[in-house]
Design a protein around this nucleic acid. Structure first.
Length: 570
RNA sequence: UGUCCCAUAGUGUAACGGUAGCACUGCAGAUUUUGGUUCUGCCUGUCCAGGUUCGAAUCCUGGUGGGACAACCA
């Protein structure tokens, strides 16, 4: 793991309590669960984790950490047709990368299949569950709509013996997929749809990523989750708002099996939404499968793996999760806050270097030909302990094309004919002339330097602008991938017509690739190593980078308080 | 013609009957060999109507607005 990624989270002492912390502190005061706090993060391994999961991870592991409790990692793997080992692996990697540790508490809902089956038998024996022979569409029809009660299944009042026999035969694989289900016998006229005899087991002749071919009936989420919490000793079972209406069912199933004081309780909070991005797993999958992006870890994706590759640090994401807060109100967070968090962190830890993205050759006509001056520049003005680096200065250098204007707009502090600027860490130069090609493009700029103004020499001369630069002779070629937001619209999911498609709002300029010139110290940078390209932004070495070809991703630009007068620059 | 949840600056989030605060954003200014960072200042808010109270963002009632629920998904 990158050294830059290995720092602990903020102390964060002064922040007011969120509503879950308030509940937990109240519980602790009341001696509930003997003061024990035990949470869990329960992903379904059917996709990659995204920034919304990061909020949940930080919440669950964070709460446990804060109150001296524990947090389990539990894979909610009750549907073998959509779950894969690849996702299990990526999820564990992402949770660890964020800096959380489930120690020896790695669990799978599938570990509880035997127990769940026993409890199902118990419910049948007690007349609280029955086998329904009807197809899904009929059951759905009978369930009614939220505003009207449903009707009972004709199979609702089978004898216990018949139910036991049928359920056993379901388990033994005697029936095809969908032929029968086991349902809880609750209340078909409940105003809560989830209480209208919910399905507990369905027949799926499918190989499970862990239990293999042992089972051909699988429990549903509702029949599994609360019991799993119970088996693991979870005290506070935290999930998102859409499960709020499931809570009575969560409690109903627990009522049937619990005969002790201890019982887990479900709490719901509002999931994270980010503007200019989509967060649902389904939509992210669509972007991947439709090749709108280059995989789950494409640096434009809001997945944890995408953010990692983009150059985000675990600390920046944890600070972000902390700042967005936890409440029950629907919310849309400004991506600007995420960007603030990564700038804040990288400003402290990223070494500064020079790289030129759109090179323009500058000849310093009064500098000795063939001479190389080794300048020693600080790595980070925020942190002198990071030391210095050597940067060679020569007669010919590259500067940024946009740092020269033949005819400068007002308040342009950079280079133009007759004006002076400082080359950061080197000398002040004056523009004496330039050359254009037939198309009017500036091809070369001629300057003279003032030998008295060398950095650190004590020269008092002041100029308005300071430029970054790279010696042409020593420059390292690199590919730089400039990312912008993936969507042009604040809410890409907002329906604008009948079949509104979020993909219509993809930003065609979300990725621009340029060939840049970097200072030589960057030649051996490691994958995911992070830098500030001075005056440009924060960049990290992409995983595509190799000895033959250095590749950088732009994580985020520097904050820009000077809006460029004409046209937009990448 | 239902049940449940929610409503505080532009965006988030506090204030638990007693001066509406914090963060991000935005705008100004200071410092600056990064138009970065840092520092200072400013703008902007309790959905509406009643009620209780000496006093209401907070409690009550009724509206309004938003969200969730009708997979053998989670």
């Amino acid at each position: 793991m990158d050294k830059q990624d290995n720092r602990g989270p903020e102390a964060n002492g002064g922040r007011p309590l969120n509503f879950l912390e308030a509940i937990i502190e109240e519980d602790i005061r009341n001696g509930k669960h003997n003061g024990r706090v035990h949470t869990r993060f329960p992903p379904e391994p059917n996709g990659y984790l995204h920034i919304g999961h990061a909020k949940s991870i930080c919440l669950n592991f964070g709460l446990a950490e804060k109150y001296g409790g524990r947090c389990n990692l539990r894979f909610d793997d009750t549907n073998p047709t959509r779950e894969e080992q690849e996702y299990v692996d990526s999820i564990m990697e992402d949770v660890r990368w964020l800096g959380f540790d489930w120690e020896d508490r790695l669990y799978y809902a599938s570990d509880y299949f035997d127990q769940l089956y026993e409890w199902a038998l118990k419910l049948i024996r007690e007349g609280k569950a029955y086998v329904d022979d009807q197809p899904a569409d009929v059951i759905s029809e009978q369930r009614g709509v939220p505003t009207r009660p449903g009707v009972e299944s004709p199979f609702r009042n089978r004898t216990v013996e018949e139910n036991l026999d049928l359920f056993l035969r379901m388990k033994n694989g005697e029936f095809p997929n969908g032929a029968r289900v086991l349902r809880a016998k609750i209340d078909m006229s409940s105003p809560n749809m989830h209480m209208r005899d919910p399905v507990m087991y369905r027949i799926m002749h499918a190989r499970h990523h862990r239990s293999g071919d042992k089972w051909c009936i699988y429990p549903t989420y509702d029949y599994t989750h609360g019991q799993s919490d119970y088996l693991e000793g979870i005290t506070h079972s935290i999930c998102t708002l859409e499960f709020e209406i499931h809570r009575p069912l969560y409690d109903w199933f627990l009522d049937q099996i619990i005969d002790t004081d201890y019982r887990p309780r479900q709490y719901e909070f509002a999931r994270l939404n980010l503007n200019y991005t989509v967060i649902s797993k389904r939509k992210l999958l669509e972007l991947v499968e439709g090749k709108y992006v280059n995989g789950w870890d494409d640096p434009r994706m809001p997945t944890i793996s995408g953010l990692r590759r983009r150059g985000y640090t675990p600390l920046s994401i944890r600070n972000f999760a902390d700042r967005v807060g936890v409440a029950k109100r629907e919310n849309v967070i400004d991506v600007g806050l995420l960007e603030f968090c990564i700038r804040e962190d990288l400003n402290r830890c990223a070494p500064r270097v020079f790289a030129v993205l759109n090179p323009l050759r500058v000849v310093i006509t009064n500098f000795e030909e063939g001479k190389t001056e080794e300048l020693e520049l600080e790595r980070n003005p925020e942190d002198p302990s990071m030391g210095t680096r050597k940067v060679p200065f020569t007669r010919e250098i590259y500067i940024e094309q946009e740092d020269f204007h033949e005819d400068p707009p007002p308040k342009f502090f950079r280079l133009s004919p007759g004006r002076e600027v400082r080359l950061k860490g080197a000398y002040i130069i004056r523009c004496e002339g330039f050359q254009k090609d037939d198309n009017g493009r500036i091809t070369e700029v001629y300057c003279t330097y003032d030998p008295e103004t060398r950095s650190g020499s004590g020269s008092q001369k002041k100029v308005k602008g300071t430029l970054h630069w790279v010696s042409t002779q020593h420059a390292v070629n690199c590919e730089v991938r400039l990312y912008d937001r993936l969507f042009m619209k604040e809410d890409p999911e907002e329906a604008t017509g009948e079949e509104a498609d979020f993909k219509l709002f993809l930003n065609p300029d979300s990725l621009k690739v340029v060939q840049g010139k970097a200072e030589p110290s960057l030649r051996n940078a490691a994958h995911l190593e992070k830098f500030q390209f001075q005056r440009l932004g924060y960049f990290c070495v992409d995983t595509d980078s190799s000895d033959e070809k250095l590749v950088f991703n732009r994580t985020v630009t520097l904050k820009e308080s000077w809006i460029r007068a004409s046209g937009k620059e990448s």
